[in-house]
Computed example of a mutant assay.
Amino acid sequence: MESDQIAYLAGPRHMRGSGHPRLGFVLVLLAALVLGGWGAWRTFAPQPPNAGEQLKQQASRIDQLEQQVATLTRSDQISRQANSELQSALGERDEEIASLRADIAFYERFVGATGQRRGLTVHELKLVPQRDPQLWHVVATLTQNMNRGAVSRGRLQLIVEASEGGRMHKLDWTELRQQKDAPGLDYSFKYFEQVEGDIVLPAGIKPVRVIARLLPQSGAPVEQSFTWGDAVSSMPAIGADAR
């Protein structure tokens, strides 16, 4: 009887020790069943009766929004470009207005009843560099309003004072034109005129001053001097020809 009690007591321990693997298997099986049931429910659960229609509507809405974004982006680009072109056009108009105002002031000084009387003069001399570093384009604006209605005729010549090797010397018109007995630039006007021509400077010289010499058909020559820097940096002269 005592041995039966010992066997009885030993039995449950043995069963409990060998029951752990079975318990783990049961838990794994239950977890698999739960996950499988959840997946099946997700797959086979009844969907809303209009789920397909909702998906189509959402896809259509997405397409509409993407199209709106593309349209707005393009519209913004066009607006920016148009604004840039407008600003550029406004800048050009401002420059044109300023130039016209300057022309009006110029005309009033020489044609207006209250304009100051002046004889034949070089109102402005401009030298424009060309691609050839020795070639320069000359633009001279000549004016006179002393004799209203009278026509001034004659020729314009230039003389350039330059430094070469530390020494100053003058280049006359024939040297600047590279032509023996080169005639001057003809002019003929009542109030003002712009005359143009080209000169060539020898290589290696440093121009310092330019002298404009007017040779009218009647009367004494008129000379005016301009520093080379002022002539090169001067503003464009009046372009109209009022003969």
Rank of each mutant, 00 (worst) to 15 (best):
Arg209Gly: 10
Asp94Lys: 01
Leu176Gly: 01
His14Val: 11
Gln77Thr: 14
Ser60Asp: 02
Arg155Glu: 00
Gln157Trp: 00
Leu185His: 01
Asn145His: 03
Gly239Lys: 00
Val139Ala: 09
Ile199Thr: 03
Arg61Ser: 07
Pro49Arg: 07
Ser60Cys: 08
Val200Glu: 11
Glu53Val: 10
Arg118Trp: 11
Arg109Thr: 12
Ser163Cys: 13
His169Met: 05
Leu176Met: 11
Lys180Ser: 14
Thr174Trp: 03
Ala140Ile: 00
Gly229Ala: 10
Ala212Phe: 04
Asp230Trp: 12
Pro49Tyr: 03
Val28Arg: 06
Gln67Asp: 12
Tyr8Thr: 06
Gln58Lys: 09
Gly39Glu: 10
Val151Asp: 07
Ala32Lys: 08
Ser152Phe: 03
Ser163Lys: 04
Pro49Lys: 08
Leu158Thr: 01
Ala105Asp: 09
Thr141Leu: 14
Tyr191His: 11
Asn50Ala: 14
Ala45Met: 06
Lys126Cys: 03
Arg61Tyr: 15
Glu2Leu: 02
Ala98Leu: 14
Asp186Tyr: 00
Leu171Phe: 09
Gly11Lys: 05
Gly91Ser: 05
Gly166Ile: 01
Lys206Ile: 13
Gly39Trp: 09
Lys170Asp: 06
Leu125Phe: 05
Gln77Glu: 11
Gly197Val: 07
Ala7Phe: 02
Gly17Leu: 02
Arg93Gly: 08
Pro48His: 08
Leu90Ser: 12
Gly11Ser: 11
Gly184Arg: 09
Met235Val: 12
Gln68Glu: 05
Val232Gln: 07
Ala45Cys: 11
Glu95Cys: 12
Asp63Leu: 12
Glu53Cys: 04
Ala240Ile: 06
Ile211Gly: 12
Thr143Val: 12
Lys206Asp: 05
Val69Pro: 07
Ile97Gln: 06
His20Gly: 01
Ser233Val: 12
Gly11Arg: 10
Tyr107Glu: 06
Ala10Cys: 05
Asp172Thr: 14
Ala162Tyr: 07
Glu66Ser: 01
Ala102Asp: 15
Ser88Leu: 15
Met1Ile: 10
Leu185Ile: 01
Met15Asn: 11
Arg101Cys: 01
Asp132Ala: 06
Gln130Tyr: 07
Leu156Asp: 03
Arg118His: 09
Ala203Arg: 00
Trp38Ala: 03
